[in-house]
Design a protein around this nucleic acid. Structure first.
Lengths: 207, 207
DNA sequence: GTCTATATGATGATAGAC
DNA sequence: GTCTATCATCATATAGAC
């Protein structure tokens, strides 16, 4: 799946420039909306030269997805079964929110891909992602059953964390349309801490 | 912005068929990924005939956005300043989740548009949407200040509701990759009820 | 109002010189 | 390895007959 490794410094630099440019363009316009022309221009190369490094638009997109995967799954991987449950879950929320703040393009690229049915990423979702989520869901379920956190549905809890944190990157335009120039992240962090903190309690008020 | 009203029954039927087909295709593939060929085929018309009803792809997309707007904002509009606060907010969550379940294509069409910077919907976001959100945020803030619900950030609360409910429509492929054939909506409803119920409490456990 | 045929432009990819 | 020139395809939109 990966190309033969680059040998010269120029190749390393060009390859990196292409991946950076492609991330920018794919994130902003989706797979179909992105053009090789635009990516090549952003990378400072000619279109045929770009295609010398990646044999097709499809191959370029795939290379990015693969590069991104570990970065993307890292925050969940760090959740430690032996840690303090509440701290582990709230820590995951914080790391994931930081990921949205520091890597919004990566978030939007994934969002574009999944929104359109994950034509290229589906194997990853059903393979590596599902395995990881099943594993961490089991950890959370054990915490819940032992009473160290309140009763929660681990899968929906994880979906919630994804949805809430990624929202600030993926729907940034909408957030800004409503909040103006105010940086949403400080408020978001406090709110998510409150929201998940309350939900993880042993019990909660019902009225 | 809107075309002259259709006059005959055939026109009404064709126009509706086009909008239905276009919703399907735009939602699944985004603006650039959708082709007039595919929309025309899905609507059972020739491409030039489609362009007789809508002068351009752009105009067709705009017509859909406008048609969708009221449907989309209705659940929030229904939130009643004179109702019982907790019930009003949880009711909004439920209606919005039903909207995702019953209208996933509409959700994905909006998501595509916003994800790519809202090139066509931006005026709506900064206009009608912002006005409505500001109004309802003030209502929630008043509830919070009077102590009828706990201290909440009204804007982030509303973002949370959008993010969580729309996630099940927009990222359906990912949810299914992890949950398999299980219908996620019953579990989602219970979880969101728990999550927001806990967060709206007067206070919550901090450890 | 609806169709066939076609103009026009964009885009992914290749050929071949240097 | 990198470029200019070009091909083949596809997509939006229009012309014009019926």
């Amino acid at each position: 799946m990966t190309k033969s490794p680059p040998r010269t410094r120029i190749q390393v630099r060009n390859r990196a420039a292409i991946l950076e440019a492609a991330l920018e363009v794919f994130a902003a316009r989706g797979f179909r909306g992105a053009t090789l022309d635009r990516i090549a221009q952003a990378a400072g190369l000619s279109k045929p030269n770009l295609l010398y490094y990646f044999r097709s638009k499809e191959a370029l997109h795939l290379a990015i997805l693969e590069d991104l995967l570990e970065l993307w799954l890292a925050p969940l991987r760090e959740m430690d079964a032996d840690g303090e449950p509440r701290e582990q879950i709230l820590g995951y929320v914080r790391r994931k929110l930081e990921m949205s703040r520091d890597h919004p393009r990566e978030s939007r690229l994934f969002a574009n891909e999944i929104l359109q049915g994950a034509p290229r990423a589906r194997p990853v979702l059903e393979g590596e992602l599902k395995v990881l989520v099943d594993e961490k869901a089991a950890v959370i379920a054990a915490w819940s059953e032992s009473g160290r956190i309140g009763p929660v549905d681990p899968y929906h809890l994880i979906f919630s964390i994804w949805a809430l944190t990624q929202h600030y990157a993926d729907f940034e335009v909408q957030v800004r349309a409503i909040m103006g120039k105010t940086d949403p992240y400080p408020g978001a962090e406090a709110w998510l801490d409150h929201l998940f903190g309350a939900a993880l309690g042993i019990s909660h008020k019902t009225t």
